[in-house]
């Protein structure tokens, strides 16, 4: 236990030291050295994590892809906070978003992966880039763009990295002693029963799946009648026997295939409109508020011009003289 924490702490320490040197302003050679050390540390981690790169087992593939994506994400994130030109930072953030989307795909969250790319990379980041362009420094006389001093020199590199280190220590301790050992996966059966129950609630969905399995059932479940309901769900040999189905008093025993379970996108959409519709409205209110706010903040004249101010002060004075007769 102790030795492993020491082990990890050393590696993370080297990595953070390298990060510190990268963040700190300094000579190019030093930065180069830091990069090499940092890459070395990361490489060691990679080597530890994926000793089986190139293995033939197809079940290892996601592993390799995971490491590729997460390495890109982490490396881009580091570059994002160390690059002295904000535009590049924003572009590196796009890289982070893209590789996160890849991770989402690995996690079977296809819809979220694409939504992330569209919303984040497509919309939010573009807005950032617009604003960055607005505030872009004009090129110098020799045609090169010199980043302003505040972009080149970080504010609290040592303290910042130290805080980050403590935070990371907290989180990695949690991961190694909490996530990896204490969290237990829920029984698959229970999760699948929950999925079937969702299917049952989705309007017309269960009927459609039933008819797909057994077209004869179409007459038994007319579309305009009480929706079909499960009265029992069991699992035997990987095939789900669904039934008896209760509708208009009659029950049927039907085996639904795995593919009949609601898809990820269906489940997300269903949760969104069935479980959290009010939250959706609330999100709408927040967006409306943000629009208001952006309009108010970005309007050009929040201040009055100087002569207007002078006039206003005079008007105030007279109003005050009139009002100052009484107290309270």
């Amino acid at each position: 236990m102790a030795s492993s924490i020491f082990y990890l702490a050393c590696v993370l320490g080297i990595a953070t030291a390298a990060l510190y040197l990268l963040v700190r302003p300094g000579a190019r050679a030093l930065k180069l050295g830091a990069t090499v050390v940092g890459l070395g540390a990361l490489g060691w981690l990679v080597q530890q994590f994926v000793g089986m790169l190139g293995g033939d087992d197809p079940s290892d593939r996601p592993g390799v892809i995971f490491f590729i994506f997460s390495l890109i994400a982490v490396a881009s994130a580091v570059r994002m906070i160390t690059h002295s030109r904000p535009i590049y930072s924003a572009l590196y953030f796009v890289m982070v978003v893209l590789s996160s989307a890849g991770l989402f795909l690995l996690l079977e969250a296809e819809f979220m992966a694409f939504a992330l790319i569209i919303v984040y990379a497509g919309a939010i980041l573009i807005t950032y880039l617009f604003v960055l362009m607005l505030a872009q420094q004009a090129p110098g006389e020799d045609g090169t763009v010199q980043s302003p001093e505040y972009d080149r020199i970080p504010r609290e590199p040592a303290a910042g990295v130290a805080v980050g280190f403590v935070m990371l220590a907290l989180l990695s301790e949690m991961i190694f002693s909490g996530v990896s050992t204490e969290l237990t996966e829920p029984p698959v059966a229970a999760a699948e029963v929950a999925a079937w129950r969702e299917l049952e609630q989705m309007p017309g969905q269960l009927r459609r799946e039933l008819i797909r399995v057994d077209p004869d059932l179409e007459e038994s479940f007319p579309a305009d009648q009480t929706p079909a309901k499960f009265s029992r769900i069991d699992e035997q040999g990987g095939i789900f026997t669904v039934g008896p189905l209760g509708s208009s008093g009659q029950t049927y025993e039907v085996s639904l295939p795995h593919s009949a379970m609601p898809q990820n996108i269906q489940r997300v959409g269903w949760a969104l409109v069935h479980q959290y519709p009010a939250s959706l409205e609330l999100a709408g209110v927040i967006l409306l508020m943000a629009m208001f706010g952006a309009v108010v903040l970005a309007q050009r004249q929040i201040e009055l011009s100087d002569d207007e101010k002078l006039e206003a002060a005079r008007a105030h004075q007279s109003a005050r003289d009139a009002a100052n007769g009484g107290d309270a």
């Binding site: 963040v23 994130a77 505040y150 504010r155 935070m167």
Partner: peptide
């Protein structure tokens, strides 16, 4: 990512970054 974001937040001086 979270920690790198945190470090960036406290070290960068550019408001957009």
């Amino acid at each position: 990512l979270f920690v790198i974001g945190l470090i960036g937040f406290v070290t960068r001086r550019n408001m957009i970054v």
